[in-house]
Simulated scan of single mutants.
Amino acid sequence: MRIFHIATLADWEAAQESGAYRTSTRGVTLDEEGYLHASRADQWERVRAAYYADVTEPLVLLEIDTELLDAPVVEEAPAPGVDETFPHVYGELAPAAVVAVRRL
C-alpha cells in the first residue's frame, strides 16, 4: 500500500543524512506525538490546504511503500467524532521506505 506524508525539504534532507525521518507533522516530532501523520492518495491535498497553506519554505510529498516500513501503520480517526481515518506510522521512517519524492 502507498501512503503519503508532507514534509519540509529541510526535514527530508536531514532524514536522508541521519537515516531516519522523525517529524510527525508540522512542528511536532515523533517523540512528542507518538506516531507520524500520513494520508492516503485522496487525502494529502486537503491536508496540505488545511495545515501547510501558509508554509513558505519548500515542501515535498513523500510517497511511502508500507511494505518497506519497519514500523506498524494503523488507520485511525484524528479526533473523537471524526469518521474519516488516516494512516499513522508508529515509528520512525527509514528513507528506504520512501519510493518517490515530489516537490510541492
Score class of each variant (00 low, 15 high):
Thr29Asn: 05
Glu33Lys: 14
Gly34Asn: 08
Glu63Val: 15
Val55Asp: 05
Leu69Cys: 08
Ile64Glu: 03
Glu45Thr: 14
Glu13Pro: 01
Ala49Gly: 07
Arg22His: 08
Leu59Arg: 10
Ala50Phe: 08
Ile6Asn: 01
His37Arg: 08
Thr29Pro: 00
Ala53Asp: 14
Val73Ala: 11
Thr66Gln: 07
Ser18Glu: 12
Asp42Trp: 07
Ser24Ile: 09
Glu32Phe: 05
Ser18Thr: 15
Trp12Gly: 00
His37Trp: 15
Asp54His: 12
Glu32Cys: 00
Val55Pro: 01
Arg46Trp: 11
Asp31Met: 05
Asp65His: 04
Val55Ala: 09
Ala20Gln: 13
Asp42Glu: 15
Gly34Phe: 05
Trp44Gln: 03
Glu13Ser: 09
Arg22Val: 15
Val55Thr: 13
Thr29Lys: 05
Tyr52Ile: 03
Arg46Ile: 07
Leu62His: 02
Ile6Val: 15
Gln16Thr: 06
Tyr35Pro: 00
Val60Ala: 02
Ala71Phe: 09
Ala14Lys: 14
Gly19Arg: 01
Gly19Gln: 01
Leu69Thr: 04
Tyr51His: 14
Glu32Lys: 11
Leu36Asn: 05
Leu30Asp: 06
Asp11Tyr: 07
Val55Met: 09
Ala53Trp: 12
Thr25Asp: 07
Val74Leu: 13
Glu63Asp: 02
Ala7Phe: 06
Asp54Phe: 12
Pro58Met: 00
Leu36His: 05
Arg22Glu: 14
Ala71Asn: 06
Glu63Gln: 10
Leu69Lys: 04
Thr8Tyr: 05
Asp11Lys: 08
